[in-house]
Nucleic acid binder design. Structure first.
Lengths: 260, 260
DNA sequence: CGACACCTTGAAGAGGTTCAAGAAATGTGG
DNA sequence: CCACATTTCTTGAACCTCTTCAAGGTGTCG
């Protein structure tokens, strides 16, 4: 039941580098030789541009499981590219209500919420030991004035996040519990697959409660829905280990004709 | 029961210009003399920068009530700054499910969803006769390489949209019907007030069904909740005319201690 | 190994949906 | 400008999904 990385067709490199031994002092912080570059950075850069891009990443930072990368109210300085590990972001209302707004994995960028008011408006918490590349935002600004591809890339990343959130709004606004969980699993496994992992097996890094928060459900409902899927032979669930047995069934649950 | 524009404290100019007579041919398309500039454009620009900014807006475009500004799948060329009128944006799932992702009014920018894949991923529909400024995105790119304030402004606009959507996710994920509608009304009236309208009276430009779609509720629930608020003396509702009688009550409904 | 966090399952209950019917407003064409 | 068709809104009643509360089981970490 191990989550076995397999090469993904669309990525030459897989995150096997995460297991390489390293010493933080000798570590060359550079995008140009990072195997996640194709996820974080624009593609098709010229050698000179690539060299400039290396300037964006100031440092790397390690975050222990459960630790906070940034929190609501903190001043915004940098975006973070996830190198290894897994995060959740969540917003908190005045009354203490909490909402997980996303789960992020290697190659994804977090911190975009902080740009508008120079303060973060959500918390980012590591769900497993993680490492991020710290990219000072003013440096990104300077450089993207000179490297067009970077400018466009930044725009694309922000736009992608907006579109992703549209999808979550659709999910929260119009789907039932089973549809939500099915969509969630398909999305997770698809992103993992793009990183070289199995397209049918995954290990959830978050609790039922966190899944529930993200999906607008209570943890009991999440648990029950997992059990339902399991009874129906669609997935095999052992705690956080999930094996998808029938991807098509999940897809048809998501696309089930809704009464809008 | 007319919606009477009154000067807002934080804006020197109000959208009274929208009633000025004009001829599309003689119309000077320029941000520098637009009274909505403080909403769309960065503040504190130098005169030269201001002049450059005028280059962003290529043309204006009028959209009749019910007409489509752009639709899902269409190729993306430009962002649009709303000059007058009111829009909704909505995404559609494969199965035909529909979700209103936002309502936009004067001074707000739409089309950001199109950047990531050079295609729009949602529909933008005018809910009343409208006029927009067409801002070709590549021109924005060029110019923002030269005018730092514009670059930062574009980043801020996108970040603001991300943060707004976080708020919607919180609403959809954790609020009950009454809380959602209360939050919706407060948000609308606050934005209208920032544009010089009353802080207690508003005219809804959308149907109950569209409100429901946005809030993840059925139109009947929206209607019933309006009735409830009305019975409780919190608002006065006559069709699409809403008068808020007790803003504090609405606020306390939104911030009611939630069981998470 | 024991404490704690996390997960599962049942039963009862609440909130929102669905279906249905009618009323009010809006738009259209003669 | 009025009559009619259409859209939009309101309200009631039954139903269903998800939540709440509760209890016990499982896994994990120091």
């Amino acid at each position: 039941m191990k989550e076995t990385p397999v090469p993904a067709p669309n990525l030459k490199l897989i995150p096997s580098g995460t297991t390489e031994p390293f010493d933080p002092h000798s570590m060359k912080v550079a995008c140009s030789n990072c195997n996640l570059r194709e996820l974080c950075m624009p593609i098709g850069l010229s050698p000179e541009e690539l060299e400039r891009i290396d300037e964006v990443v100031a440092t790397r930072r390690k975050i222990k499981r459960g630790a906070i990368l940034f929190r609501n109210g903190e001043s915004f300085q940098s975006l973070f590219a996830i190198r290894t590990g897994f995060f959740k972001t969540c917003v908190t209302a005045e009354d203490g209500r909490d909402q997980v707004t996303g789960f992020q994995m290697a190659g994804e960028i977090i911190g975009l919420d902080g740009i508008v008011n120079d303060r973060h408006t959500c918390d980012a918490i590591a769900l497993e030991d993680a490492e991020v590349c710290v990219m000072p935002f003013d440096r990104i600004g300077e450089l993207s004035r000179e490297v067009n591809a970077l400018q466009h890339h930044v725009h694309r990343i922000m736009s992608r996040e907006i579109v992703r959130e549209h999808g979550v709004m659709l999910l929260l606004g119009s789907m039932r519990a089973e549809e939500r969980l099915a969509a969630f699993l398909l999305n997770l496994v698809q992103r993992l697959h793009a990183r070289g992992f199995s397209r049918s097996e995954l290990v959830l890094r978050m609790t039922r409660e966190e899944i529930g928060s993200y999906l607008g459900l209570k943890l009991e409902t999440v648990s029950r829905t997992f059990s339902k899927f399991s009874e129906d032979g669609i997935v095999e669930v052992r705690q956080r280990h999930v094996r998808i047995l029938d991807t098509e069934a999940l897809k048809s649950i998501v696309n089930r004709q809704a009464c809008n």
